[in-house]
Design a protein around this nucleic acid. Sequence first.
DNA 1: TTATGTGTTATATACGATATAGAACAGATG
DNA 2: CATCTGTTCTATATCGTATATAACACATAA
Lengths: 135, 135
Amino acid sequence: MFISIDFADDKPIYLQIHDQVIDAIASGKMFSGSVLPSSRQLAAEFGINFHTVNKAYNLLREERYIQFSRKKTAVVSEPSMNEALLQEWDNRERTLLAELVARGVSRQDIVHRVDRLLDTVGLSVENGSKGGGQP
Amino acid sequence: MFISIDFADDKPIYLQIHDQVIDAIASGKMFSGSVLPSSRQLAAEFGINFHTVNKAYNLLREERYIQFSRKKTAVVSEPSMNEALLQEWDNRERTLLAELVARGVSRQDIVHRVDRLLDTVGLSVENGSKGGGQP
DNA sequence: TTATGTGTTATATACGATATAGAACAGATG
DNA sequence: CATCTGTTCTATATCGTATATAACACATAA
């Protein structure tokens, strides 16, 4: 499975699941139409409560990353974006960038660092037909 | 004052203060040696508890952004950075970048967006470090 | 010296978020 | 029918956030 939970991490479990699903989509491991494991199934796999998984799934649905089909199974949605989301993203990104600037990291180093990170995010391509339209 | 508090924001007050101090340093409004207002003083200004301000200050100190002089006043430290901090920053930045990638934003758009954000962060001359010199 | 202001420590309360637990429900599936 | 799905409800326990009050050691200025 593409999800792992670190109980020692201070980050809430439901957020760990939430972020890793987004990461799986970004990296191409999952894409529009991919079916996610059920709440109870995923919960059993990690020995956690299925309500915790539900919380992650519901958040992902509110953010339009996934949706629930009539079969009640969670599936990855078509990518969606809007101005409000971009504005909210900018706020968080700006706060993060300010940390490096405040610590004296040069602008060139920051841009290079972001660029290098983007390399590691989308290692898609391989693995079946990605980008060839929707399944 | 370079700090404002939004009680409607879901972000904790102590984190709002924390992030805005870092932003002030990044933008050059504060730099090494700048004196921050006292906990009780800043708390009174916004009608909040001084323990809340203390929580923000102590976090900033643990992160080496500020320190407390023998006079017990909080002052901005010299910029510091290390590998562990960079690694931790990468993790958070990667999660943030994955959101845009998962939503279908092109790599070029993301880089351009980050570059534009960096314009708004450091409105202090060059980067690399604000001059000023230290006392 | 006295008075004031600083960060620090301690105890206490209140509230929301996180996580767990168990039960029951409607709808789809085989 | 039996099973699985997400959903809803109630309940509990724990932690983080925020406030409140008190007291302390230290530094500063009157």
